[in-house]
Structure formats: structure tokens, C-alpha cells
Design a protein around this nucleic acid. Sequence first.
DNA 1: ATTCGAAATGTTATATTGTTTCAATGTTAG
DNA 2: CTAACATTGAAACAATATAACATTTCGAAT
Lengths: 166, 166
Amino acid sequence: MASSPMDETFPTRDHDHNSCIADAIDAAERECRERGLRFTEIRRRVLEIVWNRHAPTGAYDILEELRDDRGSAAPPTVYRALDFLLENGFVHKIESLNAFVGCGRPDGDHAAQFLICGKCRQVGELDDPDIARLIARKARSVGFDVSRQTIEIEGLCRHCAEAAYG
Amino acid sequence: MASSPMDETFPTRDHDHNSCIADAIDAAERECRERGLRFTEIRRRVLEIVWNRHAPTGAYDILEELRDDRGSAAPPTVYRALDFLLENGFVHKIESLNAFVGCGRPDGDHAAQFLICGKCRQVGELDDPDIARLIARKARSVGFDVSRQTIEIEGLCRHCAEAAYG
DNA sequence: ATTCGAAATGTTATATTGTTTCAATGTTAG
DNA sequence: CTAACATTGAAACAATATAACATTTCGAAT
């Protein structure tokens, strides 16, 4: 079986981008079939666009690409597709960038942590249960009942850090 | 000495709001004097407005209040003041709300974690070094060099959780 | 196959958040 | 004083997101 699109936290330089996209789309399609969701043409297309960039993509960038295919499209078209993809875990929103990235593990809920490289602008997804648990525990210890975690970590990915510091 | 404005993660029901604001402003004033920064009228006023709400405040809400005092003001006035306050650690931005909160510990850098109550919309600041360290360690373990952490935790504060679940 | 209701999409307008640019004013150091 | 610099004023604009309502598409039930 082909490797999942995000086995590595950061996509490696030489990963097979085409198959990585295809895998992600296939996975979404399968999930939708299983869950009885409608993976419409627009939703598929938006997901493709996001994966194609393999980097955080703004709603209006998506809109432009959509227009390239379909002639016309308005913001609600994009936001509605993104809402669907977000709700069902196929993309994540990076709040600190107002942008969206594909999710490599569209299975059930998971508290993700994002590593945002300030140099190459790529985003890696860390799904570390230790982090999620520690945060939940610390929050509970002050009486706070956690429902969602937004964790965005800025810095330099391995590749860019090596390029910078030798 | 008066207690710092954020001894508790969440402001208690009965905390002395007036003195809590005054303390925060005084602390900022002192820090600015020590660091040779200009704590101008506008900057002070914006900081006051943010503390007054004691909840995440949007830039345009600040703008409105500013206009109440000064007759006229434009967005850049607010954003410039916020930039100053952010750079110097007197406020934080809550990325997931596009809003700003006062920082109770304007001393040097600290990686903060925010607890956002979905019910009363108040925000508590957790400055937990264990969380910051664990995240830094996990990130480093995949070769990522961390420079900033954005951690926003949504849920219910103690008070609202108790009200909801009895 | 037809029809009915719900979900999805189209379309226009608008709301919200944030930036650019340049001019004017104020502050500080030499 | 005055030259350099930081701060503020003001107008325009850019980017992000939602509201409201019309239309189409889809799928289930007849």
C-alpha cells in the first residue's frame, strides 16, 4: 500500500507529491462514502487545490484557482466547501495565518499541533497525544473543561534551519 | 503590595476590577520607563480599553471607544498602538478570535497558553512552562526549531462549566 | 418515473479585519 | 537650535469572512 501523505511531519524534499495528493483525495472520498457524506465536485476541487499547494492556502487563493476551472465563483462557494472539509477533518485552519492546509489523518477527531516554518512557509502536522493530554490536564487543574485546542508553533523546519545555520 | 491582576488564571467573580486595571497600567508604565519606551497617551488609552473589558477585544471595538474620547481616530491608530503593546508584551493577540487581551505578566518573554471560555467569552492566561517545554522538545525531536508558540484552548471555565453541569 | 423536501450551489451585497501611503506633528540628542 | 527620528493624522484600499435570498441538484418515498 502507498504510504500515507503525511508519514513524515514535514514533507520531505523528494516525496511523491502527485501520489500524496491522490492519496489524500482518495482517503477523503472513502471517508465520505463510509460516513454517507457528499463529496461533491466543488469540495473535491477545493481539497485538491489545498493539497496541491502543500502549504497554507488562503480562501481567496483557492477562489482564484476555482475560477480558473469554473469561470465564475464567489467567496461563499469557497467558504462553504472549506466548512465542509473542516467539519469532517479533511483540512485544518491555521488561525495565525488565516489559511488552510490538508489534513493527513482524516480519521476521527485528533488534537493536532502545527509546525509552521517561517522560511519556506510549509506546515507540518504533529499529532502528539502527549501534548494534547498535558494541556488537557493542566487546563482541568484550574477547573477548565477543554473542548478544542489550537496549537500553532512557529519556527524553522529542519531543512531551513540547516540552510540557515550550516 | 497589591496582588497582580492575574494571580488567578481566570478573574474571579469578585476581584477588584478597578485596581486590577490600575495595576496593569502601572506595571506597563514602569516597564516602559525602565526600558526607555514611550508610553504615550494613545498607547495607555488602548491598554486601558483592553483591560477594561477584561475579555478579548477587537481592534474596531477599541477604535470605537477611542473615538468616544478623542473625536476622531482611524484604524492605523489602533493597530499601531496594538503593535507597540504586542511587541512589548503588554497585550496578547488571540488568533482564533482576532482579538486582544491584556497580559498580566508583562515581564520578558513567556510562552502563554490561553483558556477561552466559549460561554462567558472570558480568557484566562496559563503560563505553564511544562507545556511550553514539552512542545519545544517534541518539535525539536522532528528537527523543528521553535521561535513562537500560539496555544489557544477552547472550552468552559470553571464557573460556566458548573453552571452548565450543576 | 414523478414528486417532494433537503442539501448544495449561485449571486449580490455587505461586514469585519488589517495595511499602505504620505503628510503633519512632536520628541530627543547633538 | 535643528537635524534626525518616532509618533500620529488622514484617506484610501486590501484581505478575510458572512448574510440573505434565489436557484439547482440530489435522493428518498411514493
